[in-house]
Amino acid sequence: MRNKFVVRSFLIIVILLVGGSLYSLPYYVSKPGKAMELSPIIEVENGYEEKGSFMLTTVRMGKANIYSYLLAKLNKYEEIYPVEVIRSEDETDEEYNVRQLHLMASSKLAAIEVAYEAAGIPVNYQYRGVYVLNVIPGMPAEDKLQAGDRVFKVDGKEFKSSTEFVSYVENLGDGQEIALTFERNQVVKEVTIPLKEFEDRPGKVGVGIGLVDDKEIIVDPVVEVETEKIGGPSAGTMFALEIYNQLTVDDYTKGYEIAGTGTIDPEGNVGPIGGIEQKIIAADKAGAEIFFAPNEGGAADSNYRAASATAKDIGTNMKIVPIDTFSEAIAYLQSLRAK
């Protein structure tokens, strides 16, 4: 009898544990990720080698279950975010992942442009169509297009930018149909979709997709950036530094292990990111000696100030360097004494 009670109790505990791990809460949990060397990820054709290394830093982000939520509550450097803070309204998991991958792709393009222009090398773009980020529920594109589709023709016409695409569609009327030629999973398809007026934009018609330019950058020497499993725009600054370093004779690492984070735009401006505290921990564990952090113009709540506070709290000797632009990072590296 006692054995039956023990077995039954054990099974109940197992069921509760499994159920708790499978049941998702309306939150995301982020925790320290990794710091990864960029030289194996980025390769400029006939690029110069470096003695030290540039590293990107990541956070681990996932949906919260009961246990991860409770652990995050107890861990100082794990953060809990409501779903609506991470995902846009009506955005599916697939659309969120597509958006993150696109943000990474845009970050790579900006980093390449900044690095090549800094090295005095021309940059050109080839427009490939519009990239579907999300589909608005209740609009005509629902169940016909999906996040990740690349639309490259409208009514048989090709355009040079998403602006031209939108302008063409908006000049048509409510109820008119357009034929879209698109690529999905390397298969070309065509679909006819009626236009409909947006509820929140009277007078404006469309099929109901969020879109961005899909374009290819053309540079010589060629650069390859392998980031298939990395999402988001936060590695842009470090991408630019690694690419630039491979393009130039001088080794800007000076033999140091250099980590950092921050978005970058085509003008070389460095922008803030989320999870700076977790990235400091990841960089410290990887042995980084220098960490570039977005300064945000010296704002009181800047990434740099949060990074400095975390570095002090964990007792690292890693040097936290504030930057607002790519050129400021280069100037700092130029002033370093080589190892």
Score class of each variant (00 low, 15 high):
55 M>D: 00
88 S>D: 10
87 R>M: 08
20 G>R: 01
24 S>Q: 07
84 E>R: 13
98 V>L: 04
36 M>I: 11
94 E>L: 11
18 V>D: 08
43 E>H: 15
53 S>G: 03
82 P>G: 08
25 L>S: 03
60 R>C: 09
14 V>L: 10
37 E>D: 08
39 S>K: 14
82 P>R: 07
77 Y>T: 06
21 S>A: 11
100 Q>T: 05
19 G>C: 00
60 R>L: 15
23 Y>T: 00
50 E>T: 13
65 N>V: 08
42 I>N: 03
45 E>D: 15
20 G>E: 02
61 M>D: 01
49 E>F: 12
74 L>P: 10
52 G>F: 05
94 E>H: 11
66 I>G: 03
12 I>E: 05
58 T>L: 07
26 P>H: 12
67 Y>A: 02
43 E>R: 15
88 S>M: 05
83 V>A: 09
94 E>V: 01
56 L>N: 09
58 T>Q: 07
69 Y>P: 02
46 N>D: 09
75 N>K: 02
87 R>S: 00
59 V>G: 02
85 V>D: 03
58 T>K: 04
98 V>I: 03
66 I>F: 14
25 L>N: 08
74 L>Y: 11
99 R>T: 00
64 A>W: 01
96 Y>H: 09
50 E>S: 15
34 K>E: 13
57 T>Q: 13
93 D>A: 04
101 L>F: 06
99 R>A: 00
66 I>W: 11
71 L>N: 15
80 I>L: 02
102 H>K: 13
34 K>W: 08
50 E>W: 15
69 Y>R: 00
83 V>P: 00
12 I>D: 05
